[in-house]
């Protein structure tokens, strides 16, 4: 579900960048980037087995 929301938010940010005010597009970008970092951290809790 979070990935659907992220794709939707990016589509809206792209439309804001193309038609809307620049600060809105950049603000949306910042929120999405932070959400992507949070998603990565969430999925980085899996055990990582290394070969050394």
């Amino acid at each position: 579900m979070e990935f659907t929301a992220l794709f939707l938010a990016i589509t809206i940010a792209m439309l804001a960048a193309w038609h809307g005010p620049r600060p809105v597009a950049i603000g949306l970008f910042a929120v999405i980037l932070a959400a992507c970092v949070a998603t990565l951290l969430h999925h980085a809790t899996d055990r990582l087995t290394l070969s050394f």
């Binding site: 990935f3 990016i10 940010a13 960048a17 193309w18 597009a25 998603t39 990565l40 999925h43």
Partner: peptide
């Protein structure tokens, strides 16, 4: 997979800069 989707999301997010 979830990480694959996240990479796809970040490729899409790369487009914001060029659009601006």
């Amino acid at each position: 997979c979830p990480l694959c989707l996240l990479q796809r999301i970040l490729f899409a997010l790369l487009a914001i800069g060029p659009i601006l």
